[in-house]
Design a protein around this nucleic acid. Structure first.
Length: 284
DNA sequence: TCCTCCCTGTTC
DNA sequence: GAACAGGGAGGA
């Protein structure tokens, strides 16, 4: 389930494999994976990949269409991928046949084949002009990048969004409109590190505790990026490597196991429809 | 503000 | 053969 650190790792490992190459052809094996409201696909064919970057949990690929392509007008285009739970990228050698879960194939001019695989079919690739990004409601509503703020700023931002909110503090962290890129793993881990009960109503979290939460969130995200993300089940980066941060989990996936701090059994709850593991003794 | 749905493979 | 994993859309 790629969250911020995983998508960041994928962007970093994918970029050196594809930037500068030309997309010679595109094969759409699962039509619903490709969201192309403006029929921009012809412009992507023959386009050169300029850069690969991340915003929230989105992986963005900017391409420069061939100047002669019909309707492309020489302006850059964006491919915005959301990997959801099981999206993966891999660059295969020429001639590699699609796998069972391959949804899109981008044939590169050097013969390489960039596969977008997605077992559970939730992921998508949206084609758009950079100018149209603000018209995409999901993009327009995204909150700030948590690693691009000072801890103090992030703390104040979180505190402001938690004011008067009855929803659980964890639900607020998962809300992409508040902060972008946090998923189930990093919400649980950062709340544990900050010693905050994930089930507590956001409004009940004392203002003084948001600095600890902001610092925990940033520390966990930075550490995970250093470790190339967390690999549970499906996740691999674009070079096929697993991350290592799953070895540092204090709570995620550790229901009933002893708390690393106090040794008491970790509890399980369901918050905002997501499985949640926490230590009632250490998180209040 | 919470629930259901979309999906398929793994675990109980 | 059911429960579970879960990001986000859409509906109650």
């Amino acid at each position: 389930m790629p969250e911020l650190p995983e998508v960041e790792t994928i962007a970093r490992t994918l970029a050196p494999q594809v930037v500068g190459k030309i997309i010679a052809d595109i094969e759409v094996l699962l039509p619903k994976t490709l969201q192309d409201d403006e029929a921009l696909l012809p412009g992507v064919k023959g386009a050169r990949i300029r850069c690969v970057f991340r915003r929230a949990k989105l992986l963005l690929v900017e391409v420069q269409p061939d100047g002669n392509a019909q309707g492309a007008e020489g302006k850059p285009l964006l491919m915005a991928f959301h990997l959801k739970m099981t999206g993966r990228f891999f660059v295969h050698p020429a001639g590699t046949a699609p796998g069972r879960h391959t949804r899109l194939i981008f044939d590169l001019d050097d013969g390489g084949r960039l596969f977008f695989d997605d077992m559970r079919r939730f992921g998508f690739c949206r084609l758009l002009r950079p100018d149209d990004l603000p018209k995409w409601p999901f993009w327009a509503q995204l909150g700030p990048e948590p690693l691009e703020m000072l801890p103090k700023e992030l703390a104040a931002h979180l505190a402001a969004h938690c004011k008067n909110k009855r929803a659980a503090i964890k639900a607020v962290l998962l809300d992409q409109r508040v902060v972008a890129g946090i998923g189930n793993i990093y919400a649980d881990e950062s709340l544990f590190k900050a010693g905050i009960d994930p089930t507590a109503p956001a409004a009940a979290v004392a203002p003084a505790r948001f600095l600890a939460l902001a610092e925990a969130l940033q520390a966990i995200l930075r550490l995970s990026i250093e470790e190339c993300g967390s690999s549970i089940r499906d996740y691999r980066d674009a070079a096929g490597n697993a991350g290592a941060f799953q070895n540092s989990f204090a709570v995620y996936g550790r229901k009933d196991a002893p708390c690393v701090r106090c040794g008491k059994a970790l509890q399980h709850a369901r918050i905002a429809g997501r499985g949640t593991v926490y230590c009632p003794h250490c998180q209040k």
